[in-house]
């Protein structure tokens, strides 16, 4: 029974992890940018929902779309006016600049929001439902469901809509993108904006089940990266599955080896995956 409970927790948390990684996988797969500021954008989304809730009394799940939209605009502008300036330079340089952005966002957040712990705590935060004797926290369940819905939306966008086809063409090559009659600069900005929006949504949900501080970004970036590799860059549902895999692995590790190891298990998994299944990793030089 304990095991079933732990697995349930892991799956629910993992769905949210998958949503965190989704934006990173999209940006990486299409723009070839490994965005080291992704976790910091998740953090920003979390604070946006927090302030809408704590400051203006907006229900977190109503605040979520607002924060998501806000993060889209943020991501769009960032790509349009900063990252587009360096996208053709070496991979190391895009790693470095997004790392620099991570530092800037983190410390601006510290100045603006202070370093105190924050949680988004609506009245229903503690509510549970019991299914076959397993406790399912409502908020976690809602986060999981929203993650699945958003993954579905991204899948529809990429596979059924003209914008999505243009985005996928861009990931093949830039010239093909022009054939779709889209301005690549615009398209890059929109894609990065979608990635940021997904980060924002994930952050808002994360804030309802865990603490927010300005410093959570780095570890969330790393986790997202691991999940993106495990889940692959092309299929949104693959990424969600990758997230669930990591979520379950973390919960089990915490149970059997203690919580200090649960933070590193995702890296352990990463190294194992890279070594056991290196074909894709080796090809991307």
């Amino acid at each position: 029974m304990l095991l079933a409970q732990i697995l349930t927790n892991g799956v629910l948390l993992g769905g949210l992890y998958g949503l965190m990684a989704l934006g990173m996988a999209l940006v990486w797969g299409v723009l070839n940018i490994v965005n080291l500021a992704h976790g910091a954008m998740i953090m920003l989304g979390g604070y946006a929902v927090y302030y809408l809730f704590a400051g203006l009394g907006v229900d977190p799940f109503l605040a979520l779309p607002i924060a998501t939209l806000g993060m889209f605009v943020f991501g769009y502008l960032l790509q349009r006016f900063v990252l587009n300036l360096v996208v053709r330079s070496a991979m190391l340089n895009t790693l470095l600049i997004t790392f620099g952005l991570n530092v800037v966002i983190t410390y601006l957040a510290q100045l603006a929001f202070s370093a105190d712990f924050r949680t988004i705590n609506p009245g229903y935060a503690g509510s549970n439902i019991a299914v076959f004797g397993i406790t399912v926290p409502l908020v976690n369940f809602a986060a999981f469901a929203i993650a699945i819905v958003l993954a579905g939306a991204i899948w529809l966008l990429l596979n059924k809509m003209p914008l999505g086809r243009a985005i996928r063409a861009t990931s093949q090559n830039l010239i093909a993108a022009r054939l779709y009659g889209v301005n690549p600069r615009q398209l890059y900005a929109v894609t990065f904006g979608i990635g940021a929006a997904l980060a924002g949504a994930a952050g808002g949900l994360y804030g309802t089940i865990a603490h927010l501080t300005p410093y959570i970004g780095a570890s969330l970036t790393a986790k997202s990266f691991v999940i993106a590799i495990i889940g692959g860059l092309s299929n949104p549902f693959g990424v969600i599955l990758g997230g669930i895999f990591v979520g379950v692995a973390e919960s089990l590790t915490a149970l059997y080896f203690g919580p200090t190891y649960s933070d590193v298990i995702s890296f352990g998994l990463l190294v194992v995956v890279l070594i056991v299944r290196p074909a894709r990793a080796l090809r991307t030089a």
Binding site: F225, I229, F267, L274, P278, T284, A285
Partner: peptide, 17 residues
């Protein structure tokens, strides 16, 4: 044996582990 960002992040993971 890993290349590019894969190598970079694998080393990052090792540092944490």
């Amino acid at each position: 044996r890993l290349r590019g960002p894969y190598f970079a992040i694998a080393t990052l993971g090792l540092a944490a582990a």
